[in-house]
């Protein structure tokens, strides 16, 4: 039996998760020049909110989904105010540390509130998936791939064809100039954090039925998503998507044909090679010279 189609499907499914989280990274990085090390915890918190609403309180799935995303929007705003905003004039280093602190805070607050047990979140669909041509298409992965595609399209439309999107872009390119043009820079950054938290939340909720809901779920994904953004070229949306998909596929095939235990190392190795050979990533702008 040929393994390749099955591996490819799984690889793309996992890659789509990385890509979704990576999108959140890229947005915040573009707006603030800061890597948010707590991006993975956004996914984790959203998944737990979903468990609270859909499982514990028994709300309908769609309502729980909206409520969880609403919660994420609030968290994103608080995160901006508490973790980023006071440090906005300092170098990237304190902000990195601050987001690492926030990631510890979020993970352990969830632990304190909900306990260490992994939880189950049912998927959107009743059926687990479909078997076609010897390949099992997991329904949740199909959903993840679909949602990722839609979100990417939405993001493209939003940034290129709406006024708010253009203001966001202007802010990320040159804050001083943007504020001279009358763009409310602080508001734009706030919006970025809110959207980014919601995006991370969507990723967490979608992936929860596959990976279960646990305290550690976010950090593992986030690290991979981070690697994906670098492979793709930091600050580039297309790069994040392609990088995420590439990483998912590389890992899956690497596990199948090279080594299962070292599959994580493989991803990081690819990353290091990229950093040394092509630091600008697949799609990053050429660092060396001005266009």
């Amino acid at each position: 039996m040929d393994l390749v189609p099955q591996l490819l499907f799984t690889g793309i499914g996992i890659g789509a998760v990385y890509a979704l989280v990576a999108l959140g990274f890229v947005l915040i990085f573009r707006a603030t020049n800061v890597v948010n090390f707590a991006q993975g915890e956004f996914s984790m918190v959203a998944a737990f909110l979903m468990v609270v609403f859909a499982v514990d309180l028994g709300w309908p799935y769609w309502l729980s989904f909206l409520a969880a995303l609403g919660g994420m929007a609030v968290l994103g705003a608080l995160f901006n105010l508490g973790v980023y905003y006071p440090l906005r004039h300092r170098s990237y280093l304190p902000v990195i540390i601050s987001t690492i602190g926030a990631s510890i805070l979020l993970a352990n607050t969830t632990l304190a509130l909900y306990g260490p047990q992994p939880q189950v979140l049912p998927g959107w669909f009743e059926t687990q998936g479909i078997l076609a041509g010897g390949v099992f298409f997991d329904s949740q992965y199909l959903l993840i791939i679909g949602v990722t595609a839609v979100l990417v399209a939405f993001q493209y439309w939003f940034f290129e064809h709406t006024l708010v999107g253009k203001k966001l872009q202007a802010t990320s390119q040159d804050k001083e100039m943007a504020s001279l043009l009358g763009i409310p820079v602080a508001g734009m950054i706030m919006l970025t954090f809110v959207y980014s938290a919601v995006l991370g939340g969507i990723a967490g909720i979608l992936v929860a039925p596959v990976l279960f809901v646990s305290i550690g779920m976010g950090s593992t994904i986030a690290l991979k998503a981070f690697a994906a953004t670098i492979i793709g070229g930091f600050g580039d949306v297309t790069g994040a998507i392609v990088g995420g998909l590439a990483l998912g596929v590389i890992e899956t095939f690497g596990a199948a044909y090279i080594s299962v235990p070292y599959k994580d190392a493989l991803g990081f190795l690819v990353l290091v090679v990229f950093l040394v050979v092509r630091p600008q990533g697949l799609f990053g702008e050429r660092v060396a010279e001005k266009a």
């Binding site: 799984t10 890992e251 199948a256 299962v260």
Partner: peptide, 20 residues
């Protein structure tokens, strides 16, 4: 004989190897 690292997110390659 198939080892895996803890907190693997996917076991497709392992399962396929078992099947094969």
């Amino acid at each position: 004989d198939q080892g895996y690292a803890n907190q693997s997110q996917d076991f497709t390659p392992v399962v396929l190897a078992i099947r094969q």
